[in-house]
Nucleic acid binder design. Structure first.
Lengths: 138, 138
DNA sequence: AAATATAGTTAGTTTATACTAACTAATATA
DNA sequence: TATATTAGTTAGTATAAACTAACTATATTT
């Protein structure tokens, strides 16, 4: 059990460091942690409006509005007015905004590669099977 | 290979969410990402001075000095003047500052528990073996 | 001993990140 | 239809997080 905790800790560090490295690769060092979190959440929520984004981030609407305005200014986001409710607008990631996801995909792929480099086909299949089990609901 | 990348992505999310949850548990929500990063780095570097901390964080000394002053004010850190070089002081985490590490330990343990809950003894040993191989140097 | 370098600090500035209070415009409810 | 609510905005404020330039005190080099 002790050894498992150690491994989890190492995995955690590996993910953190890989993300940092990927951030440099993708020239996203200028983005703060907070800004990354905004873009990740917008991606996760799939074109939320400001109210939804604020709720998800547990921040007030004015706070989120100011942040969103800056992202629009810097061409990471754009707004599309809603047809159903003309008060509301959906937030979309621009190509530049989507870089964050590409960055995530990139370092996930790199970690996956480093895993498969260390194991043979059979071991890899076993690992995938066990991790799937471990990550399954309930 | 595709499935492995998917698993890595899920692991990454699991770690992120577990850390967020642990942060609430330990009443560290008042700390920003940046502040967490400072404390983690100070812990990692083992009582660095301001110059070393600034170099590691890739920030200027005045920036780090201001941040450190606030941590001292809030009783997360204290300084000990160096004997060898009287210009320099080492940064130490207080008990409160060490909460961050305890928080890390806590969520690593929780993840490890959730893993072991899903597998029997034999599977768990196999998983630990494979992950150790995967996390080994070279 | 004088000149140079280093650790840390101070002051001043900019931008990011958060808040509350009060507002407009559109939608939903009584 | 008058009233409530909701989505978003504006204004004003406070603190965090970063910088450069210039300084003090100590250590190192010439």
């Amino acid at each position: 059990m002790k050894s498992l905790v150690t491994i989890v800790s190492k995995l955690s560090n590996l993910f953190g460091q890989s993300e940092e490295a990927a951030k440099e690769q993708f020239h996203l060092i200028s983005l703060t942690h907070t800004q990354m979190h905004y873009l990740e959440t917008i991606n996760l929520l799939h074109n939320p409006n400001i109210t939804e984004l604020a709720r998800s981030l547990k921040l007030t609407k004015p706070t989120v509005k100011v942040a969103v305005d800056k992202f629009i200014e810097k061409d990471f986001l754009y707004k599309i007015q809603s047809d159903e409710d003309r008060r509301s607008a959906h937030l979309h990631l621009t190509e530049k905004g989507k870089l964050i996801n590409q960055m995530h995909d990139y370092y996930h792929k790199r970690i996956a590669e480093s895993f498969s480099r260390k194991l043979n086909r059979e071991e890899l299949e076993t690992l995938v099977g066990l991790l799937n089990k471990v990550l399954s609901e309930k």
